[in-house]
Design a protein around this nucleic acid. Structure first.
Length: 451
RNA sequence: GCGGGUGUGGUAUAACGGUUAUUAUUCCAGUUUUCCAAACUGGCGACGCGGGUUCGACUCCCGCCACCCGCACCA
């Protein structure tokens, strides 16, 4: 198989109605992408599979869907207003930008609690130069949280943030879940939804974007159990990748994130990386968030975040294990992994070897010839029946049969059902397999078990 | 944000400072076709946006936008 490029994927994604550039008719908006009919179905199938795997099939998981706009105090308590900000400073000669706090730390300055002005003062005091040896100027804070305003007046009191992660919705609802469901610890609160980050430079198609979907859960535990439960979720995440998404184990890698690279809330983090066409890049994260968030919210909200075990043992503020899954990245990994080229009848063929459960179209129904009314009407019957059964079924009578097969190959449809003259005689149809191109005859009545 | 590259129908592309912007494919309507992108006929469809130079700009210049590559960033 030849190497595939991002352009191959992006081109197919657009041509076949998976993903379009956001705001395309106005020249686009960097870091935004729109999902077309097949893309949204594929994404929804992935999300549904995730929900089933991590939420529905378990009895310790509680799903929620919290608001994207939250009281700004949430983001102050979580540390995102302060911690999600990068102070950047510019090399006056090369115009390169550097993390001001990193430069100061390298120079032996303790930057904790310093604001931008204090850091700039420290630069002057130390006579600090850029790593390239030039003068530094134009410091600026760069916060990854998008801001907007509630109400008509744009003042500080009306500033709210678009959530930079969905996790905070789980923390702010932690007490609600306990009051409604009185679960035993450990238990999890799960959510799938949009998050927003004002990335400096969006990159690599839908990989790094400013608006994206996250599926994640906060698993509330007793702190004594963190290592054991961390391992359990680590295993489950691999299982998800391999068994549900069909990603080969040798394409999914773990990266133990060193302390200096971890998020402000994390005591241990493992990144799950995938071999994308553009390199080995982060797909998922598994973080031990400790009691960082609940303690912060307890402090700032004044609400008690302790959990009281039913056996009467000592109350405690639970710690949290957080597996987090980029949905768009998952879709991209699945598409890249599914993209396959081979030869059929001497002709090159491109097809998406998608797992059946994820494929946006489950089956395509065609009459062998479209100018034979008896074939067309029989095919319509079969189509209507399958459509009722499976929903995601497509009708195609365009061109010739080979063309239709190829078209379905490109969008990853696992099965093509063809109605031919024999159908009229004995009520059997052919089912053509996407991966092998082999055809098997089945009775119409048994069809739904074979597609 | 820095540096480099690219921007022409849905996709992939050609050419040109000056007639109606090339080709393939897709798509639509038909003819044909008894299982893997067959053939034929007809049709729709494009110069990223904004300025400038010029008698005239898709083409040259400037700005912007977007995408790709390298760096930086990625709590």
């Amino acid at each position: 198989m030849s190497d595939i490029s991002l352009e191959d994927i992006a081109s197919l994604a657009k041509r076949r109605g998976f993903i379009y550039q956001g705001s395309e008719i106005y020249g686009g908006l960097a870091g935004t992408w729109d999902y077309g009919p097949l893309g949204v179905t594929l994404k929804r199938n992935i999300v549904n599979a995730w929900w089933k795997f991590f939420v529905e099939s378990r009895d310790d998981m509680y799903g929620i869907d919290s608001a994207i706009l939250m009281n700004p105090k949430v983001w102050i308590a979580s540390g995102h207003v302060a911690g999600f900000t990068d102070p950047l400073i510019e090399d006056t000669k090369t115009k390169k930008r550097f993390r001001l706090d990193h430069l100061l730390e390298d120079a032996g300055v303790d930057v904790k609690g310093m604001d931008l002005a204090a850091m700039v003062a420290a630069v002057q005091e130390k006579g600090l130069k850029s790593p390239d040896g030039n003068d530094l100027a134009n410091p600026a804070s760069f916060n990854l949280l998008f801001q907007t305003n509630i109400g008509a007046v744009e003042d500080e009191a009306s500033t709210v943030y678009l959530r930079g992660e969905t996790a905070q919705g789980m923390f702010t609802n932690y007490r609600n879940i306990i009051d409604s469901f009185y679960p035993d610890v450990p238990f999890g609160v799960a959510q799938v939804g949009k998050a927003f980050r004002n990335e400096i430079s969006p990159r690599d198609f839908i990989f790094r974007v400013r608006e994206f979907e996250i599926a994640e859960f906060e698993y509330f535990i007793h702190p004594d159990k963190w290592e054991e439960l961390f391992e359990r979720w680590r295993t489950q995440m691999h299982k998800w990748c391999e068994e549900v998404l069909g990603l080969p184990a040798d394409k999914v890698h773990e990266l133990e994130v060193p302390p200096e690279d971890r998020a402000h809330y994390s005591k241990r983090t493992i990144d799950f990386e995938f071999d994308f066409p553009f390199g080995k890049k982060e797909l998922y994260g598994l973080a031990y968030r400790t009691d960082f968030d609940l303690l912060n919210h307890q402090r700032d909200s004044g609400k008690n975040m302790e959990y009281r075990p039913k056996d009467g043992s000592a109350p405690f503020v639970p710690h949290v294990i957080e597996p987090t899954f980029g949905v768009d990245r998952t879709l991209m990994a699945v598409m890249c992994n599914a993209y396959t080229e081979d030869q059929i009848g001497g002709e090159k063929r491109v097809y998406l070897k998608l797992p059946k459960d994820l494929a946006p179209v489950k089956a395509c129904v065609s009459p062998l010839l479209k100018n034979k009314p008896e074939l067309v009407s029989k095919a319509r019957e079969v189509y209507d029946m399958l459509k009722r059964e499976l929903g995601a079924v497509m009708w195609d009578d365009n061109g010739n049969i080979g063309k239709r097969y190829r078209r379905q190959d490109e969008i990853g449809t696992p099965a093509c059902v063809t109605i031919d003259f024999q159908t009229l005689e004995d009520g059997t149809v052919t089912v053509r397999n996407r991966d092998t191109a082999e055809q098997t005859r089945f009775k119409v009545e048994e069809l739904k078990e074979h597609v």
